[in-house]
Simulated assay, not measured.
Amino acid sequence: MKDLISIVTPTYNGENFIAETIKSVQAQTYEHWEMLIVDDLSTDNTVEIVKAFAAQDARIKFFILPEKGGASLARNKAIREAKGAYIAFLDADDLWKPEKLEKQLAFMKEAQVAFCYHHYSLIDEAGQALHIRRIAPEKLSFHRALLGCSIGCLSVMYHAKAVGLIQIERLDKRNDDALWLKILEKCQWGRLLDEDLAYYRIVERSLSSGSKVKLLKYHYRLYRNIMNYHAIKSLYYTICNVFVYFYNKKRREIRL
C-alpha cells in the first residue's frame, strides 16, 4: 500500500490564489495524498472556493478555526487532523511542480531521512517567473537552524511517526521556523533533495514581505516563548539571525 502524504495548508483571505494552489496539488503524479486546508476566518470568498473543491475531491479536507489563531494555530489543527505517514507544507499562494511529492517521497525513503526540503523558484503575483531560484543547504542541523533557517515552507516534508506530533504556540510570524526547530530538535538533521520542485509567490501584502527590523521581535519570541530559552540566549540567537540573513541573502539566490 502506498504511503499517505498529508498536506498542511493554512488560509486567510486567499481567494486570488487558493484555486491555483489546490490545482497544483491535484496535478501531482503521486496521487495518494490528503490536503488539510484550515481557514483562519477569511472575510473574502476563500471559504466558498475551497468548499467547492472539497465537494468534488474527497482528498481535500476543509476546517475553519473557531476564532482567529493565525497560521501557526491553523497548521497545528491540520497536523492534529493529519492521517498521513508523511506531512508536507504548502501555503495558500504557492505552487508545486507535478513531480514534487513523488520525487521527495522516493528520496526520503531511499536516503532514510525524516526531514527533507528542496530548492524552489520565485514567481510574482500574476504567476510570472522572476527567474530566481532560492537554494537550500545540503544539510541542516538543529544547531545550525538556531542561527538562521534558510529553507522554504513549501519545500518541507517530514516523517510523522519518526518525529511525532508537533504543535507550536501561537506566533504570527516566523512560525514555520519554529516548526522546523521543533522537528530538528527531535531528528537532529534535515537533508536536501537537490531539485527545484516548487514556486514561491512574492505577494506584496504577505507577512514575509514586512520589514526585517519588525520581524526581530518575532525571532526573539521564537527563542524566548517557543524554545523556552532565557532572555540573553534568546537575544543572542536573534542577533545571529540578523547576521546570517544578510550574509546569505545573495548567496542563496541564483539567476536562472
Rank of each mutant, 00 (worst) to 15 (best):
Y12I: 01
K23M: 09
K23D: 13
S24L: 10
Q28K: 08
T29H: 03
T29R: 05
E31Y: 05
H32F: 07
H32L: 02
L36M: 06
I37C: 07
D40T: 03
S42Q: 03
S42P: 01
G70K: 01
A71H: 08
A74H: 00
R75F: 12
E81T: 04
K83R: 15
K83V: 06
F89W: 02
L90D: 00
D93T: 07
D93K: 04
W96E: 03
P98W: 09
Q104W: 04
F107D: 00
K109H: 15
V113E: 02
Y117K: 00
Y117R: 00
Y117C: 01
H119N: 14
H119G: 11
L122Y: 14
I123W: 00
I132L: 15
H143G: 11
L146G: 00
E169A: 15
K173A: 15
A178F: 03
W180F: 12
L184W: 02
C187L: 04
G190D: 01
L197D: 04
V203E: 10
V213G: 10
K214R: 12
L216G: 03
H219M: 07
H219I: 05
L222A: 04
Y223M: 10
R224Y: 11
R224S: 04
N225E: 14
K233S: 07
T238L: 06
N248K: 14
R251K: 13
R252V: 13
I254W: 08
